[in-house]
């Protein structure tokens, strides 16, 4: 399954028309220990690039943008249960944020793949 990335360090993995979204390992490292995250409610819809969630460490707060347009069909219960550590421990796995039912697969295809993202991060 391919994972794609945005310049704002979100990742997206697509299964059928459902995309799992989270923040990249690089982003989680930059952020440091997560102390809070706010996920959107199931049923909320977002256009690509819209503010979707917030993730915070003790000293910084970052907005998480919808990497592609879609409707929230699931939000990570671990995070809702305040297990913030999972975002640091497994940002690109168990620390996912939401699942989106997507509207436009072309948006997904236009994002960076793993290699392109690795290059992008190297240049930062």
């Amino acid at each position: 399954m391919t994972t794609r990335f945005t310049k704002d360090h979100e990742w997206v993995r697509l299964e059928g028309d459902v995309a799992t979204v989270g923040i990249s390992t690089y982003a989680a490292e930059q952020l440091g220990d997560v102390v809070y995250a706010e996920l959107p409610a199931v049923g909320a819809s977002f256009a690509q690039g819209a503010d979707m969630a917030v993730v915070e460490s003790a000293k910084t707060a970052s907005d998480v943008y919808a990497p592609i347009s879609g409707e929230v069909v699931d939000a990570n219960a671990e995070i809702k249960g305040e297990n913030w550590q999972i975002i640091n421990d497994a940002p690109q796995d168990g620390g996912w944020f939401v699942k989106l039912k997507i509207a436009n697969k072309a948006e997904f295809d236009a994002l960076m793949d793993e290699a392109a993202y690795a290059d992008y991060v190297k240049g930062l």
Binding site: K59, T60, A61
Partner: peptide, 14 residues
């Protein structure tokens, strides 16, 4: 001092 991510020096216009 804690929960400062609510405050202006971090959240600025938000």
């Amino acid at each position: 001092l804690t929960l400062s991510t609510r405050e202006q020096h971090i959240r600025r216009e938000k």
